[in-house]
Lab assay of single mutants.
Amino acid sequence: GKMTGIVKWFNADKGFGFITPDDGSKDVFVHFSAIQNDGYKSSDEGQKVSFTIESGAKGPAAGNVTSL
């Protein structure tokens, strides 16, 4: 299901970062391709987002990331 969290950091040059879930669980990796914004796929530190957890090649990753 959908979770909410805060972007801990995001490196636009490398195209990835981490989200800290609101439920206190482990930080989740986020790749720019998962960000659902139109246009520039980046996110700012401290941005509140909703997301799903997908199982990626390197473990859990955020999917369907949407700014709230």
Rank of each mutant, 00 (worst) to 15 (best):
G1K: 14
G1Y: 08
G1F: 08
G1M: 11
G1Q: 13
K2N: 08
M3A: 06
M3Y: 10
M3L: 11
M3N: 05
M3F: 10
M3E: 04
T4M: 07
T4D: 01
G5M: 04
G5L: 05
G5F: 04
G5A: 02
I6L: 07
I6N: 05
I6R: 11
I6G: 02
I6V: 13
I6Y: 10
V7W: 08
V7N: 02
V7T: 01
V7I: 15
V7F: 07
V7L: 13
V7A: 00
V7Q: 01
K8M: 04
K8T: 05
K8G: 04
K8Y: 05
W9H: 01
W9I: 03
F10N: 01
F10Q: 03
F10P: 03
N11Q: 04
N11S: 10
N11I: 02
A12V: 12
A12Q: 12
A12N: 10
A12K: 15
A12W: 15
D13Q: 13
D13F: 11
D13P: 04
D13L: 13
D13Y: 12
D13C: 15
K14W: 12
K14Y: 10
K14N: 06
K14F: 09
K14A: 09
G15W: 03
G15V: 03
G15I: 05
G15N: 03
G15Q: 03
F16A: 00
F16I: 06
F16K: 00
F16Q: 00
F16S: 01
F16L: 03
F16D: 01
F16C: 04
G17C: 05
G17W: 03
G17L: 05
G17V: 05
F18C: 10
F18M: 07
F18T: 01
F18L: 05
I19P: 01
I19E: 00
T20F: 04
T20D: 02
T20V: 11
T20I: 12
T20N: 03
P21D: 01
P21E: 01
D22M: 07
D22W: 04
D22L: 07
D23L: 04
D23I: 06
D23W: 05
D23T: 05
D23R: 02
D23S: 06
D23K: 05
G24A: 04
S25Y: 04
S25M: 04
S25Q: 06
K26G: 12
K26N: 10
K26H: 09
K26Y: 07
K26F: 08
K26V: 10
K26E: 12
D27E: 07
D27T: 03
D27W: 05
D27H: 04
D27Q: 05
V28H: 01
V28C: 05
F29G: 00
F29P: 00
F29T: 01
F29I: 03
F29Y: 09
F29V: 01
F29C: 06
F29W: 07
F29H: 01
F29E: 02
F29R: 00
F29S: 01
V30W: 08
V30R: 00
V30P: 04
V30Y: 15
H31N: 04
H31T: 03
H31W: 09
H31A: 04
H31S: 06
H31Q: 04
F32D: 06
F32C: 13
F32G: 08
F32P: 04
F32V: 13
F32M: 12
S33T: 12
S33H: 06
S33W: 06
S33V: 06
S33N: 07
S33D: 07
S33R: 06
A34W: 05
A34T: 07
A34H: 06
A34V: 09
A34Y: 05
A34S: 10
A34C: 08
A34R: 05
I35P: 02
I35G: 04
I35D: 04
I35Y: 13
I35M: 13
I35L: 13
I35F: 15
I35W: 15
Q36E: 11
Q36I: 14
Q36P: 07
N37F: 14
N37R: 09
N37Y: 13
N37G: 14
N37H: 12
D38F: 13
D38T: 11
D38G: 13
G39R: 09
G39C: 14
G39P: 10
G39Y: 11
G39M: 11
Y40P: 10
Y40E: 08
Y40A: 10
Y40F: 14
Y40Q: 09
Y40W: 15
K41S: 12
K41M: 12
K41H: 13
K41T: 13
K41Y: 12
S42V: 13
S42P: 11
S42R: 11
S42I: 14
S43P: 15
S43A: 15
S43R: 09
S43E: 07
S43M: 15
S43C: 15
S43G: 11
D44Y: 15
D44T: 15
D44E: 15
E45R: 15
E45Y: 14
E45N: 13
G46D: 05
G46W: 11
G46M: 09
G46R: 08
G46Q: 07
Q47P: 05
Q47T: 13
Q47H: 12
Q47A: 12
Q47L: 11
K48V: 08
K48L: 10
K48P: 09
K48N: 05
K48I: 08
K48M: 08
V49P: 02
V49K: 00
V49S: 00
V49C: 05
S50N: 04
S50W: 08
S50G: 05
S50D: 04
S50F: 07
F51H: 01
F51W: 01
F51I: 02
F51P: 00
F51K: 02
F51C: 04
F51N: 01
T52I: 11
I53F: 06
I53P: 03
I53H: 03
I53A: 03
E54I: 15
E54A: 08
E54C: 12
S55W: 15
S55V: 14
S55L: 14
S55M: 15
S55T: 13
S55I: 15
S55Y: 15
G56Q: 10
G56R: 08
G56D: 08
G56L: 07
G56W: 09
G56K: 07
A57R: 13
K58T: 08
K58G: 09
K58P: 07
K58W: 15
K58H: 12
G59K: 05
G59D: 03
G59E: 02
G59Y: 07
G59S: 05
G59A: 04
G59F: 07
P60I: 12
P60W: 08
P60L: 12
P60T: 10
A61Q: 15
A61Y: 15
A61C: 14
A61N: 09
A61T: 14
A61V: 15
A61W: 15
A61F: 15
A61S: 12
A62M: 02
A62Q: 02
A62R: 00
A62Y: 02
A62P: 03
A62V: 03
A62E: 01
G63W: 12
G63C: 14
G63P: 01
N64W: 09
N64C: 10
N64E: 07
N64A: 07
N64V: 06
N64T: 06
N64Q: 09
N64D: 07
N64S: 08
N64K: 08
V65N: 02
V65E: 01
V65C: 03
V65G: 01
T66F: 05
T66C: 08
S67C: 13
S67M: 15
S67W: 14
L68T: 08
L68V: 10
